[in-house]
Design a protein around this nucleic acid. Sequence first.
RNA 1: GGAUAGGUGGCAGAGAAGUGAUGCGUGAGACUGCAGAUCUCAUUUACUUGGGUCCAAAUCCCAACCUAUCCUCCA
Length: 458
Amino acid sequence: MIIHNTLGQQDEEFKPINSGRINIFVCGPTVYDDFHIGHARTYIFFDVIAKFLRNTGYSVFYLQNITDIDDKIINRAKDENKKYYEISDYYFNEYVNTMDKLKINSINYYARATLYIKEIRAQIKVMIDKGYAYETSDGVYFSVKKFKDYGRLSNQNLNGIIKNSRGTINENKKEPEDFVLWKKTKPGEPYWESPWGKGRPGWHIEDTAITETYFGPEYDIHGGGSDLIFPHHEAEIAQMRSISGKKYLARYWVHTGMININNEKMSKSLKNFIKVNDILRDYKPEHLRFAMINANYNTSIEFSDELLNNSRDNVDKINNFYNKMEKIENITGNYNVNENEMIKKINETMENNFDTRSLIRDLFEFISSVNKNMDNISMETAKKIIKVMNYINNFLCILYDKSNEYNNEKLIDTMIEIRTNMRNNKMYEISDYIRKKLEENSIYIEDNGTKTEWWIKD
RNA sequence: GGAUAGGUGGCAGAGAAGUGAUGCGUGAGACUGCAGAUCUCAUUUACUUGGGUCCAAAUCCCAACCUAUCCUCCA
């Protein structure tokens, strides 16, 4: 399997540290605001790859952190006259609910930063003891110059960074590039006890404390949005490697591209972000999933209504096809498929740096080919096709749910039989009315010659 | 200014030297009472620009231009 590694900027053959097992960590959100489509892009992609890897036989532990203490949370709490945890609990809850709606259910564990204060303190202590960190009047800082590989992940030149650094105004640190590990509390702010006084952890330290707890000092894959490469992931590497003395934090670094709106990055700070819940009013989760995986993960996506409409049409096409396969009852047919060969090919496509775009292209070519031979497909072949479709769906999750399937199939069959009789007697007005009423109840019908098919679309 | 990824048809998006991918959209036709789905054909002087290499360049080389992201808030 080939993975494009941000560390080194090249495609590399993937080898897990422990054969057959993969530890993957993806940076989760800071829970102070609504879930937006930029989050969706990253988390849908990693959901697809975690599920894919499990399908191919790996045991995958997928861990995600939740930043539930941060200046933004504190500020929001202040604005709304609430406790900081009322904000973080609320948005964490919303986050988990939205993940569920998007069928992102591959994450083994959400680790909330505030539950790992003990581990964070322990890591900071080691860094101080080893001379990588120092205490000042307002906090504990990591001394970037002490860690010689700082900048290697992002190819940043430290001199350039210093020249252009900003946001150093109120902080009391030795060098502008140094970053905070522990922030000493100001009046009215939440705090935890520590050897360096009351305070709270810096942003970067949560992740290494959490990953060390579950994975140890080195693990396989670290993922996140490309906007986190510098400084966040660079800082994580500096922290953990200065503690462990090892060559790596994560072996492979995988970064997802940004979502653009009107040719500009969508972000919370630009206030141009689109909430997932707003999208889900007009589109299904499958449409958003498709839109996100119909691009290669490391490129930026220009978001628009057209993109979603296009995705909806594509997903409809796939679902229509699937429904037709389920309805096939022919005993004979010459068209054949080799389902094991197909699954092998699907795996090969995905193993080439998770090439979902090529997979989708191949899927459409396949659907087209089967459609051309629709009259020549036996039930046996249809079952093989369904097996392949289900295999793809295990990780793409683009087939619609049929959870509200009706039990009274016989009643629907009866109604359709009545309608067929009316049509045979050219009573079209009333038969169209029946069709319309069924559609209003999510039952869609299709007349194919003498046969009428129906299915439920929620 | 530095770093990174890019620039392909109405849109999305493959290809990495020689047959104009694939899907959507649009137009026409087939099937159909209609609708839907599906099929067929068309949309075909598509590859940012300028040089170069080559029998042959979207693809390789050089230069320029343009776009996005990062350079201590961010998925």
